[in-house]
Amino acid sequence: MVAVALLGAVTHQTLAAWATVDARPGSFFGRFRSVPSGSFANAVVVLYVVSALLGAILYLYFRVDVRPELERAGHWHVLGFFDLKEHFAAIGLALLPAYWVCWRRPHADESAQTRTALTSILAFIVWWSFLTGHFANNIMGFGS
């Protein structure tokens, strides 16, 4: 549930950040953009931290119970994708203070480029983690 809420918040924020400023007010992107994106920042930070903490706890069980099974079955690609998920998640966690500052304490002389880029990186990490986690979870089949 935490991961799904995080996916929704960061995806909405990223699309709104990339949407053109001159979108028609009544259009889909116009309505999309009219939601103040900055208000998502606190939620994204909290949800990301909670997801990372839960993931770090679950990782103990993954390493002992799941990963040896994947190794025995020769799912090396899945292990590679999962390793990348770990690395990306750690880098994303460290980006949260800068991300928060860019959205909640923006500088007048600062372009939106930094904010948009940071949000896009976080969105990529969240989607990668979500999809890889599900893929690793499902590859051994239901009930395995």
């Binding site: 090396w76 690609h77 292990l79 590679g80 690395h87 880098i91 600062e110 480029q113 880029a117």
Partner: peptide, 25 residues
């Protein structure tokens, strides 16, 4: 200020490079 997103993006690419052995099996 762009270093704050460019460096992590490059680091992620470096992580992909360091993880490549998993994909060579």
């Amino acid at each position: 200020r762009g270093w704050v997103w460019l460096v992590p993006a490059l680091s992620m690419i470096a992580c992909v490079y360091l993880t490549l052995p998993w994909f060579r099996f």
